[in-house]
Amino acid sequence: MKILLNNRKETIESETITVNELLTLKNFTWKMLVIKINGTVIKRHEYDSLQIKEGDDVAVIHLITGG
């Protein structure tokens, strides 16, 4: 399936994928993250259950100390 990941087109091998599986697949290993799917923030407890679908717009933002 094709999704939009951080504004970039990505092709995922499987038909569906959970948020956690996507994080592992794309090597997002940071602790502090905000994940948006189609504009909605995904709550941490949903990472294992929520399925990303064809055409979804996924944004993964790493939060880093410094300001």
Partner: peptide, 16 residues
């Protein structure tokens, strides 16, 4: 314009 990552996460989640 926070310093800490936790605070950045808090405001992003609160606003969205």
């Amino acid at each position: 314009a926070f310093d800490k990552a936790e605070m950045k996460q808090m405001i992003i989640e609160a606003v969205i």
